[in-house]
Computed example of a mutant assay.
Amino acid sequence: MSKEFKHVSESEVTISELMLPSHSNFNGKIHGGYILSLLDQIAFACASKHSGQYCVTASVDTVDFLRPIEIGELVTMKASVNYVGTSSMVIGIRVEAENIQTGESKHCNSSYITMVAKDKNGKGTKVPGLILSRRKSVLRFLKSMKRTQLKRKRDEEFHHIDFDSAEFQKELEKYRVQVELND
């Protein structure tokens, strides 16, 4: 039986993985796609732990790659539920890489992924609310709330804009683009 509210700490998940040569790109750094896969896995685990349900990725809201990750570094990802809606949750993830020989650690990535809890029939299902007992959790909730509002506003605005208008045609002149329409 699921609780009506849960402390943020009840759903936090931390994973660590040693970065291997098989995870690297052609430049010898850890491939961003591999990190994205790990981000999705930890977001799933955190959201499922909070909701007690199967969860799906609704959107990858932000992925900021700040520093490259090297082969041989120990990557640690820390995930927490930053925001809840009715069936959705925004999972915040911090990625750090540690040089295991020197102990030096660096912040490499911050990500926000929206997950949705599903019932046995694949319908969105209600998730527990959050108990915010630390100032950092309140700040994270408020920032996620604001990001969600801005995303809705942006989606609404884009839905109603006429990109064929003369105003937008003129706007293109400011950019390194050449328009050659064939239709």
Results as ranks from 00 to 15, higher is better:
107 H>T: 13
151 K>I: 04
111 S>I: 02
124 G>P: 15
162 D>G: 06
159 H>D: 10
114 T>D: 09
151 K>Q: 12
153 K>N: 11
125 T>L: 00
152 R>Q: 11
158 F>M: 11
146 K>F: 15
156 E>D: 12
114 T>A: 09
138 V>N: 00
170 K>N: 14
128 P>W: 05
100 I>C: 01
141 F>T: 00
136 K>W: 15
106 K>S: 11
119 D>F: 03
165 S>Q: 01
100 I>K: 04
139 L>H: 04
166 A>T: 10
167 E>G: 00
117 A>V: 08
98 E>W: 07
107 H>I: 01
159 H>R: 09
127 V>S: 09
144 S>N: 11
107 H>P: 11
102 T>R: 04
165 S>N: 03
133 S>A: 13
154 R>W: 06
113 I>K: 02
143 K>R: 09
167 E>C: 00
111 S>Y: 09
140 R>V: 01
152 R>A: 10
109 N>H: 07
102 T>Y: 11
113 I>N: 04
148 T>M: 05
100 I>R: 01
126 K>D: 06
153 K>I: 10
162 D>A: 02
116 V>M: 08
117 A>H: 05
98 E>Y: 02
162 D>V: 04
149 Q>Y: 14
160 H>G: 03
130 L>A: 09
163 F>Q: 01
118 K>D: 00
168 F>V: 06
117 A>I: 10
134 R>P: 00
130 L>W: 08
138 V>M: 08
158 F>W: 04
151 K>T: 12
124 G>K: 10
129 G>E: 10
170 K>H: 14
167 E>Y: 15
147 R>T: 06
161 I>E: 08
160 H>Q: 11
144 S>F: 13
98 E>R: 11
120 K>Q: 12
128 P>Y: 03
122 G>S: 03
157 E>C: 01
131 I>K: 13
